[in-house]
Design a protein around this nucleic acid. Sequence first.
DNA 1: AGCAAATCTGGTAACGTTTTCGGAAACGTT
DNA 2: AACGTTTCCGAAAACGTTACCAGATTTGCT
Lengths: 348, 348
Amino acid sequence: MFEPTIKDIARLCGVGVSTVSRAINNHPDINPETKEKILQTIEEYGYVPNNSARNLKRSDAKAIAVLVKGMSNLFFANMIEIIEGECKKKHYSMELSYIEADEDEVDIAQRLVKEKRLRGIIFLGGMFARSEEKLKKLSVPFVFSTAGAIPENISKSLYSNIGVDDRRESKRMVDYLIGLGHRRIAILVAEAEEVQSIGRLRLEGYYDALRENGIEVNPGLVCHVSQKMIPFSMESGYLAAKKLLAGGEEFTALYAVADTLAIGAERALHEAGLNVPGDVSVSGYDGIELANYIVPSLTTVRQPIERMARETARLLFDIISGKRQHQHIVYEAELLERESTKAVDLRK
Amino acid sequence: MFEPTIKDIARLCGVGVSTVSRAINNHPDINPETKEKILQTIEEYGYVPNNSARNLKRSDAKAIAVLVKGMSNLFFANMIEIIEGECKKKHYSMELSYIEADEDEVDIAQRLVKEKRLRGIIFLGGMFARSEEKLKKLSVPFVFSTAGAIPENISKSLYSNIGVDDRRESKRMVDYLIGLGHRRIAILVAEAEEVQSIGRLRLEGYYDALRENGIEVNPGLVCHVSQKMIPFSMESGYLAAKKLLAGGEEFTALYAVADTLAIGAERALHEAGLNVPGDVSVSGYDGIELANYIVPSLTTVRQPIERMARETARLLFDIISGKRQHQHIVYEAELLERESTKAVDLRK
DNA sequence: AGCAAATCTGGTAACGTTTTCGGAAACGTT
DNA sequence: AACGTTTCCGAAAACGTTACCAGATTTGCT
C-alpha cells in the first residue's frame, strides 16, 4: 500500500515541501489560497504526516506516559480514563504502562522519556521514597498522584504531587468508628511493609486515632494482606478477612484501607454468618462508585477522584507549557456515612 | 541536559556509527569484544536510542494501539491491563485511546496507523457494522474483541474477531431463569437501538429464549437504559430499574445485560424494599470479579475475559509476525449460578 | 515612479537512526 | 605463495519532516 509523503503532496500541488509543511502546521506565512488547495489535496489523498519524522525533527513528541504501579485497581482505571480524556483535549497521545512493584518508576520513566522523547510523566500509585539525585536527572516534569508519602528531605520543586492526606483521612474514618462507640476495630491493610506507602500511611492514621482516643492497639486486629497477593484486590480482602476471623479476636468494626478490600471482607463476613452492619460495621476507603451501589452501601472516605485525575493531567500540561511551576496539592476527602456502619450495640 | 546520540557513542569508542548500531541491535557481524566495549560505554553514558529516528528509518514502530469504545466499563479495564501485559512481553508499546460512540473506529485507527506507523490495532467494544471498503484499506491487522455482531456480507478474512456468542449466551441465561420457573422476566438493556450492538444481541437472546418457551414478550418488562447515560454503568442500571419499578409491571426475575447494570438495579430493588433473591431473582452478564464478592453474589454469565484478552493480543502479534492468519474465535461462556437467583416461589 | 516593507515561496540542511555496499584484515586451503 | 572465504568494519545514503535563509513577488508610501 502506497503512503503519500509531504513530497508527494508538494509535487501534486506544484509547490515546495516547506509550503506544504506550513499549510499543515498553521504557519502564518502562507497564502490562504495555496493553503486551501494543499489542504484539499491532503484530504483527497489521505495524507497523514509521519509522526516519527516530525518528532525526530522537533526533537520531542506530543505525548506523555502514564505509569501505574499496583495492578487491578478500580480506582486507577477510573483515573486513567479521565486522564486520557484530558490528553485528547490537548491533542496529546498517551502511553500506558503498568509497572511491577519491584521496578523503579523513576528509572523506567527516565528511559521512556529518552526513548520516546515524551514531554511529561504521570505516575499513579506506588510508594514514593525516591532519591533526590534521580529526580534531579529528570528532564521532563513528573506528576505523582495517589502515591505514598514524600520523604521530607527531597526538594519539593523537583516534582508535583496531587492527592489527599491519606494518614489524616484514614484517621478521620477511624475517629468516626470510635465515635460510633466501637472500641475493637479491626483493620485490613495492604502494602504496609513498604515505608511511606499508601497502605502504610492509612495504617498510621488508624494508629493515630486509637492513640488519641486512648485505645490500646491490639496486634491481633491488625490484619495484613498476604504479600503474595495483589494488594488492593477483592480477593485479598476476602482472604485477609478470613484469616482475621480465624484468629478468633473479637471486633465490632472492620476498617479496610480500600473499598475493594472491604467488599472482599464483607463476603468473608457473610460466609461466617455475620451480618453487616448488624454484627460488624464495615468501612472502606477510596469512594469508588461501586461503594454506593452495593447492599449495604459502604461507608467510606471518598477521594475526589475525578478532580484529582483531571488536575493531575492539567497540572502536567501547564508545567510543560510553562504556565505553572511544580506544586503539591492536597485535596480534602469526604467521609461518606452509609449503611454498612452503625453505632455499636450497647447490649453486647 | 545533554543527551548522547549514537554518534557520540561511536566517537567515544573510536568506532563507526554502524558498528554501534550493530551492537545495539544484536547484529551477528560484530566482534564480541568491540560489542562488549560499546555496550559498556552505552551503559556508562546512559545512552538510549531515539525511537523516532529508529521508527523513521525502519518505517514502522514496535507499537500497537488499543481503541476502546464505550466508557467506564470495568470489563474493559480488566482486559486492557491484560493486553498491556502481553505487549510488555513482546516489548511493544501500547497506546490507549477511548473513542466516542459517534466516532468511526476504523477511520480513527487508519489515521493513527498512518501517523504513528503502528503495527496493529486492537479494538474493544462498540458495535460493528463496518463497510468492507474501509476494512480493505487497512494496512495493518485489526483485531476486534467484545464487539457487536459482524455483518455477514463482510469478508471474514479482512479482520479478526474474538469473543463469545452474545446472543446465545444471553439466551442461556434466560433459559436458566425460565428453568427456575420464572415467567415474568424483566430485562435491563443498553445500546439496544444500535443495530448488531452487544446490547442488541443480548436482547435478541432474551427474545429467543422467551419465544422458544412459548412466553409472550411483555414490552413493559423490556427496560432500556436512557441513551443519555453511560450505557453499562451502575448508575444506568439503577435509574433504569427505578423506571421499571415505577412502571408497575410485575416480575419475579430481573436480567441485566451487564453485571454493572445488575448491581445498580439491585440497589433500586433494595430501596423499593424488595429482597434479592427472596422477592426478585437478579442476574447479570459478563462475570466480572466483583459479581462473586457482593452479597448476595450475582448469578451471571462469565465471559472468559482473561483468555479473551490474552488471545486477542497474541493473535494480533501472531498476525503481525505472519505466524497466523486472521481468524474468528468464539469462546464458550459459563453460567455461574450464585446466590442472587432462586426458583420461583410457588405460593405466589 | 521609486523604494522600503511586507508577504509569500522554495531550496536545503539538519534531526538520529538503520542498512547497504565495498573494502580491509585475518584465516584456510591447495 | 597465491587464492578464495570469512569476519569485521566504516562511509554514506536514505527515512519524512521542520526551520532557516534567501529570493521573488506584491504592497504601501512618499
